[in-house]
């Protein structure tokens, strides 16, 4: 039954999946080819960067923009691609329970011969697969464009970046899902997930300038702190992301079957 619910959820979101995938392919294929110009004169780029206030450079994660891994991170995985994956994941997570509960369409599923727990698990899996596909699409696009753009990023580095990006998206999507499942309020779910993402992002990129060590509590630091696109898989960071994902998932799983539905 869980698989049926997951497949059905994905089916109803296939148009969105196509749209977001197209957006990610667009972002990837627009940014990465510009590396050829960066690579032509790395010193010039470094000068540009040093002309900017260091806080700005850090805030956008531009610290290492001239290396291939640094460039892919600064443009796609740490910036626009990341923003797209987060928005797509969080909005899906918000809608999967709380949103459908408010429109009422959840009622025809929870009143059928399925356990409410299965409804939650099926939809959580659907949201997860949705984000994973977006991560893979970004990865495939990056790998394909990497050569022609002169990036020549090794595949295992791309895979490491995709793992980090994907888990970062899944964590925030499931936070949104779980808060929505616990409260039934999509505004609260959206608020909590967005605040978590903004705080996490700035704690990672600007945190060290405000308080020493604060970045270590940020999922963005777990994902990107050790620069997976340049250095490869950071299993410790991915492990922390996975733990937070499971914690969020379980929080929704425990609370959702216990409450009244405002369907």
């Amino acid at each position: 039954m869980i698989v049926s619910i997951m497949l059905r959820w994905l089916r109803t979101h296939r148009a969105g999946l196509l749209g977001w995938s197209a957006g990610l392919i667009g972002v990837t294929s627009m940014y990465l080819p510009f590396y050829t110009t960066v690579a032509l004169d790395p010193e010039l780029m470094d000068q540009y960067m040093s002309a900017l206030p260091p806080e700005v450079v850090s805030a956008f994660g531009f610290d290492d923009i001239t290396s291939p891994g640094g460039y892919v991170h600064s443009t796609v995985f740490g910036l626009l691609g990341l923003v797209l994956v987060l928005i797509a994941g969080i909005t899906r997570g918000v809608r999967a329970i709380a949103g459908d509960e408010q429109t009422g369409s959840l009622e025809t599923e929870v009143t059928a011969a399925v356990d409410r727990r299965d409804v939650y698990i099926g939809r959580a899996l659907g949201v997860t697969v949705f984000v994973v596909i977006l991560g893979l699409v970004t990865g495939v696009a990056t790998a394909l464009i990497s050569g022609p753009s002169g990036l020549d990023l090794p595949l295992d580095r791309v895979a490491a970046g995709v793992a980090a990006l994907t888990l970062l998206g899944v964590v925030h999507a499931l936070i949104a899902l779980a808060v929505g499942a616990a409260t039934g309020r999509s505004s609260i779910a959206l608020g909590v997930a967005v605040v978590a993402a903004v705080l996490g992002y700035f704690a990672h990129n600007l945190g060290p300038m405000i308080a020493e060590g604060i970045e270590r509590f940020s999922p963005f630091y777990w994902a990107y702190g050790n620069r997976p696109l340049s250095e490869g898989f950071d299993w410790g960071g991915l492990g922390l992301l996975l733990i937070l994902t499971v914690v969020a998932f379980v929080a929704g799983l425990v609370t959702f079957p216990r409450r009244d539905l405002g369907v």
Binding site: T12, A15, G104, S105, E107, T108, T111, A113, D115
Partner: peptide, 22 residues
Amino acid sequence: GGADLRARIGYLPGELAMEERS
């Protein structure tokens, strides 16, 4: 009763909302 009970019930919600795009 859970799912087993609901398999024996046919329910029409008062405010019927369905997947609009389906």
